[in-house]
Simulated assay, not measured.
Amino acid sequence: MHDENAFDTAALRLLDEVARNGSFTAAAELLGYTQSAVSRRVAALERAAGGPLFERLARGVRLTPAGAALHRHAVAVLDRLDRAGEELAAIHGGRGGTLRVGAFATANVDLVPRALKRFAARRPGVELRLTEGLTARLTDRLREGALDVAVISDYPTGLPAGPPHTVPLLEDRLFVALPAGHRLAGDDDVDLRDLAGESWIEAAPRGQPTLLVTACAAAGFTPRSGLRVAEWMGKFAFVAAGLGVTLVPELAARAVPADLVLRPLRGTAPVRKVYAALPGEPLPAALELVELLGQWETCTTASPTSVTPSPPVCGT
């Protein structure tokens, strides 16, 4: 082959049209070329192919064996290019491709699955992948290009450097989970100072900053450490058994079982802020998911100062 540039997309489409219609004239009309332009382009293709691709007949043309071989490959290439174009259009239009989502653990209790459920109903052609991790790690993965959107928070030391763009989603308040027979279970809300003598069910290893330590420090005391349990359901089980109390971010309120009482804290309890982080050139699908994340409603009852002992019902 002497001229590999002859095998460009336009030439392959021309080859396909001539082969399908058996005529240079018909192919020229379909593609908007002159007949002489078609003849010149086919001649260039034949030079590059090293021999004739079409047998010239009294009426029209037909493929030679070499032409049939090249046409078979041309059809495969054109089909792949057409499918690539459709896939790219779907990605840029938010209708297809893969959306890689990252979130910290508490956000996966209700905020993220609720938004992803609505997103999947809107965009069934988009494949969803989820990564769970701490905010710092999610930010690193976003910066590395491994995530398309991440749900992160400013806890415990503020937002890490890295995300080109962040969108505020909500403020995550703190609640306290109490056993049903607790002396404060009947109150509408609880002052953290009234729990200074309680044993606390915690998750993090000793010495690490936690929302509990921060909240109690703001209330003027150091919490009395009790049992340490990593998973939420285990923490709730120990509270239900009367072995301590635990703090619950509002994002996790939906997971609280019916046999516990969940009460908001009043006074100086800290509030963490939750954000959606995006790369510099976000996908349309990522922007749509961020919109849905921003529509999450708090898991409280009609009264903003109380939460019923039964599992909270979040907004739809």
Rank of each mutant, 00 (worst) to 15 (best):
A277F: 12
A286G: 11
A277R: 00
T316A: 08
Y275R: 02
Y33H: 07
H2C: 05
R20K: 07
R263D: 09
L195G: 00
R118D: 04
V126F: 09
A146D: 12
T305V: 07
F119E: 02
L111E: 11
A89F: 15
A26H: 03
V313M: 07
P311E: 01
T135W: 01
P163D: 03
R141H: 15
A74T: 01
L212K: 00
V248P: 11
Q208I: 05
L227N: 02
I201Q: 01
L81T: 08
P257L: 01
L260A: 03
W200L: 04
E250T: 05
F54C: 05
N21A: 08
E291P: 11
R123F: 15
Y275L: 04
T157A: 12
R20V: 00
L287N: 10
G220C: 01
R62T: 06
M1G: 14
G93I: 06
D259H: 15
P65G: 14
A68V: 13
Q35T: 09
D82P: 01
E46M: 10
A27N: 00
D194C: 09
E144S: 12
D110P: 03
A37V: 09
G181S: 10
L211P: 15
P304D: 13
V149R: 04
K117V: 08
A286E: 07
K235F: 07
T222R: 13
L292H: 14
R13K: 11
A105K: 06
S306G: 05
R56M: 06
L262R: 12
E29S: 09
L45H: 15
G162D: 09
G220S: 12
E86W: 03
V151Q: 12
R59E: 03
V101T: 04
T166Y: 08
G94W: 14
A43Q: 10
L134G: 15
S225E: 06
